[in-house]
Design a protein around this nucleic acid. Sequence first.
DNA 1: CTGCAATATTTCAACCTTGAAATTTCATGC
DNA 2: GCATGAAATTTCAAGGTTGAAATATTGCAG
Lengths: 158, 158
Amino acid sequence: MVSAPLDTIERPSAAKERLRLWIRLLRASRLIEGELRERLKRDFDSTLPRFDVLAALYRQPDGMLMSDLSRFLLVSNGNVTGIIERLVKDGLVSRAAREGDRRASIVKLTATGERRFTEMAAAHETWIEEFLGDVSRSDAERLSATLKTFRSNWEDGH
Amino acid sequence: MVSAPLDTIERPSAAKERLRLWIRLLRASRLIEGELRERLKRDFDSTLPRFDVLAALYRQPDGMLMSDLSRFLLVSNGNVTGIIERLVKDGLVSRAAREGDRRASIVKLTATGERRFTEMAAAHETWIEEFLGDVSRSDAERLSATLKTFRSNWEDGH
DNA sequence: CTGCAATATTTCAACCTTGAAATTTCATGC
DNA sequence: GCATGAAATTTCAAGGTTGAAATATTGCAG
């Protein structure tokens, strides 16, 4: 037993590789998020959290509960309260008590909100294409699959 | 010319694939960030932004300027001001005017800060291994390489 | 019915974040 | 010397974020 396993000598451990991955993942998201934030502000006088809420509601024409939204977006309840408040004030979202349950509110896009969102979504798509256009289709598929697996495993255990 | 190109019929366009990639990237970072935030709070009564600053300073024993920090961490100047304020109050970071230039402050870890950071960093590594342990070494390497390429291309153009 | 746990949301303090304006200090051309 | 622009940082308002405590409503066991 003179030598350690090859893995620990000849290249970074798998753990180090995963740590490096996390750091790059974080930096990439921050770069992209920062750029998106800037453009949403510039072109639509809006924000990323608002965009996320609109996107979630767009997929659910029958509306969502506040708690549905916070679960789906991975943010706290109190957070959603504030964001919805502003979207309602801007006329992009409507809010009504759920039939027969005055605790729950059902939140929907208004017609204006829907129109506004489709504009934002179109711009968003071209921006992402601008940012990630250099990633080949096969890389995108592989990466995407890895991240999906990660998330499934994660959510099963938590 | 009866049929469109195969790409557009048989599977999502490369652009859609990249959009999907972005969404998964974002969700993965948020899941991990959320979990890290929770544990840093629970075990060290600290936060992710503070951890990031300590990590940056740990790599630069001679200290950094406020502006170095904000550039490296991809956050605004004003942001760094507040975080450093709290770290100084907690005794983890020291601050002094740069020799011969009273505009600039050089920020360093204190001995306490260095000790504290190494504890946090050790925990951080085991957490990341817990989160990403299911990602194989080769997947980690591939993903990491793709993200690195993306970032290089990005930073060249901006 | 009535009390009490569960559910849905809001409130609040503390912190993070940005971008723009203000402040302080430095460097340089005249 | 000195104005004046550049550089480094701070300040500030507006918004995003969390987690814990408070509020309001519902459902249900007895």
